[in-house]
Every structure is written in structure tokens, then in C-alpha cells.
Amino acid sequence: MKKIAIYIFSLTLFSFTSCSMFELDNYAAPAETLQGEVVDAATGEPVLTDQGSEGITVRLTELSYGDNVSHNPDFNCMPDGTFQNTKLFKGTYNVNLFGPFIPLVREDNRGVPLADETQTVNIEGVTKVKFEVQPFLKVEWVSEPVVTNGKITAKVRVTRGVSEEDFRSKIEPMGGYSNSFLNVTDIQLFVSYSSSVGYRARDDRWSSKIEYSGSEFNSLLGETITIESNGTIPSGRVVFVRAAARINYDTPRGSGTRRWNYNAPEEVMIP
């Protein structure tokens, strides 16, 4: 009799627990949308990026239930510098970005806040945000890429998107400053069949790079740089190319992720 009573009690407890579980499942699915764009504060032009963790990362932290909360899973911008998340709950969120530009949140080595250029928004329906940032570099096509015998020759120009003085004034107070942070370390020519060409969508058979040591590139800022693809691209194919460059500074600081600034992709027919 005692065993039967225990069995009935356990069955009743399971029934109540099951009902509670079903009640939790009845909450509406997240359906609010955040749309954003990232532009150069000086020119208003989009900050072009890579659709991967080396591009622009978006971090949302919901503040509706207090300040001591964990951030949502990070997601990435699209190559044109825009981003969108359509699966959010209604609420108040802090929006932070990590990319190839001056960090939005800056603290000294003791954790004392120096600047906070993030945005806090109430997300309901479709909410739009715009970030004006200071990109590290600006990469431009000097002329259209040229194809010769299955090889692409590209001419690009790299300039600073933020002056050395402005960079230093904002980064040095964070501690551990080095003049080497401003060094341009490499220029890449990414080649791919995908229009989303970049580090994450590249064909290693044809993509190429030029690496620079120390401050070697300083004298080449603003000059025309010629870079040629590797291998031989088969004729009759259409490929996409982009150039990218980066400096010796990781964002977030200490993450080891040095992010490229890009130019716009070009479609190239291989005759």
C-alpha cells in the first residue's frame, strides 16, 4: 500500500511539472528586428567588411532585467557594413560593435571608463541604428583589375582612416600603448567565385598577399600598390576580387583578432 501511495504521488508531481513545462513553451517566439549600418564618421561611406569573425562583430546585451546580465550570442555584419537580427525579444538592449575601427568602449588598465560610444535602444518591431566610427584604414581601387593569361593584376591605394594623432589620443590612455600598433602588416587580394569574397570566402589557389615588417609600409601610404593573384584562373570563368589591409592592432584588445578594412568587390571575367 505504501508503494502504491508513493507511485501516485510521483505521478501527480510529474503531471504538475509537465504542465509547467508546457506553459513555458507557450511563450511567443522572438520576432523583433534590429537593423543597423556602420559608416565612416568622416565621409559617411559604409565601412566594408568581411562576413566572418574577422569582420565587424555585433554584441547585444539585454538590459530589461537589470545590468548584471550576459550578452546575447554575437553575430556578424554583412560585407557592405550592414547588419540585421530578426529573432529578438522585445526589450532594452545595449548594442556594441567590434571591428577595424577605434573601439567604441575604451577603459584604462584599471577598468576606469574613458569613453562609451555604444548605443542603448528599445527594440520593438523594426528598430534601426546607425554607428559612425573611425576606421583604421581606407582601401580603394586605383583602376579596374586587369587579366593577363589567367592572372589578375590589381592596383590599390591604402590611406589612414584615422590620423596617427587621433589614434594615439584615444588608444594610448587605455594602457600598454606601442607605436607599432599603427603599422600596416599586410595587403591581401582575395579571389573567389562568391560575390561575398573575403577572408572567409576566398579561393586559396588564386588569392595572394604582400606582407610588411615594422613601419615599412609608412612610405607607401597613399601610393599605388600593385598586387597580382596566384596561380592561373581557368578561362571562361567569372570571379570576384577584393583587396584588404590591416594594422597591428587587435579588437577587442587582447583578443588576437586583427581585422581588415576592405574595398568594394569587383566582378572579373577571365577570357
Rank of each mutant, 00 (worst) to 15 (best):
S207K: 08
L24I: 08
G55D: 03
M1S: 14
I152P: 05
S207E: 05
K87G: 00
D250F: 05
Q84I: 13
G231L: 11
Q188R: 14
I233T: 03
S169Y: 03
E266A: 12
Y27H: 14
V156G: 05
G198F: 08
E267R: 14
S70P: 00
G236Q: 00
F89T: 06
V197S: 04
Y249K: 05
E165A: 15
V139I: 07
Y177I: 06
V238D: 13
N94K: 15
G111R: 07
D67S: 13
Q188V: 13
Q119G: 06
L88N: 07
V133C: 02
D74S: 10
T118H: 08
F181K: 02
T12E: 01
L11Y: 01
D74T: 09
I171L: 06
P265I: 02
K209Y: 08
F136A: 10
N72L: 12
S15P: 00
L221A: 02
F217D: 00
Y27L: 15
L97E: 08
P46K: 02
F89N: 10
V112P: 00
G55P: 06
S195M: 09
Q51P: 05
N72P: 00
R59M: 10
E266C: 05
Y199G: 06
R242G: 01
R157Y: 03
N261P: 03
E144F: 10
E172I: 02
H71M: 05
E216G: 01
F240Y: 15
Y249I: 08
E23A: 14
P79Y: 09
S180F: 04
L220H: 09
E223T: 12
D108R: 08
E107A: 09
T82F: 04
V58K: 01
D25K: 14
S255C: 10
D108W: 07
Y212C: 07
G44A: 09
R157A: 06
S215I: 00
T118C: 15
E37D: 09
Y193H: 05
A115Y: 03
A31T: 11
S213F: 07
A29Y: 11
E54S: 11
A28K: 14
G231P: 04
D67M: 13
T61G: 01
G111L: 08
A154M: 06
P100R: 10
S180K: 07
E165V: 14
N68D: 11
F190G: 00
R246K: 14
E117Y: 04
T118V: 10
T148A: 09
I8V: 14
